[in-house]
Design a protein around this nucleic acid. Structure first.
Lengths: 134, 134
DNA sequence: TCTTGACCTAAAGTCAGCTTTAACTCGTAT
DNA sequence: ATACGAGTTAAAGCTGACTTTAGGTCAAGA
């Protein structure tokens, strides 16, 4: 399969596909002249990648997760990632409920509405950043 | 409140706070000498921004949503965003379930496991990209 | 009064994730 | 035989979200 067909089947730009190959996210099995040839299974692979990126994962993270080696470490990694997703889902749910309420609410500003603030759980919730101060 | 205190209370770098102010995401009410002074409510505001960014929204999107003007258009926008979040939650749920299964699964490769693929709903699912071809 | 530490600005730098550009190569249809 | 359309590369460019740098300001405590 030529790169153009993969592009059509996945909706990804050919430049993106070349970029992904370069990053090691996908593989071509050889060349026809200069042209990369892809197996049709790459399409499914790309759909997973697509799903994962739109779920907010970086390409490097995706590469770790979808790498072909399968051992105990990987399993732990998968579970870890699943847990990360769970906490992301919680955040998104808060945001969604907050927005839905805000849309219906009469308060002059979102920040004046206690219900809005409560939905977002604006209680203290530490975040670790700058843990790399030199 | 000095910028350093806002930084401590939110966990955001002072450079980030200045950047956010420049982008119009937050406001200082004046200066003490050169120093920006912030009202304490900016902390809550920043926490919402933080939540929204970690939910995958761009700063521009957040600005639209949290802008102080409140009219019908804004309401529609909020509902729209809430719906976007819903579809994001669906994607994340698929990913999470896929990963949890993959962690438990014996198949030699995730892509060989029908259950994994089914969890990710790898049926055709078009995506509109490149709708801006010149 | 002087020092200090926290702040200031503008501009450049960084990183991820791509896209664009420029110049080139082929297989295939006419 | 040749034109052409789809592909190729390396390198530069772009956007978003920040951070870093370099040089300066200033309020407050010793």
């Amino acid at each position: 399969m030529d790169i153009g067909e993969v592009s059509k089947l996945t909706g990804l730009a050919v430049s993106t596909l070349r970029y992904y190959e370069q990053k090691g996210l996908i593989k071509s099995y050889g060349r026809h002249g200069l042209r990369r040839q892809f197996e049709s299974k790459v399409v499914k692979h790309l759909k997973v990648i697509n799903l994962a990126t739109s779920a907010g994962f970086s390409l490097d993270e995706i590469n770790e997760i979808l790498a072909p080696q399968r051992n105990e470490l990987d399993r732990a990694r998968l579970i870890e990632k699943a847990d990360e997703i769970d906490s992301k889902i919680k955040k998104l749910t808060k945001m969604r409920d907050g927005l839905r309420h805000a849309a219906a609410c009469q308060a002059p500003s979102h920040f004046e509405c206690p219900k809005f603030l409560k939905l977002l759980e604006l209680t203290t919730h530490k975040k670790i950043k700058n843990s790399h101060i030199r």
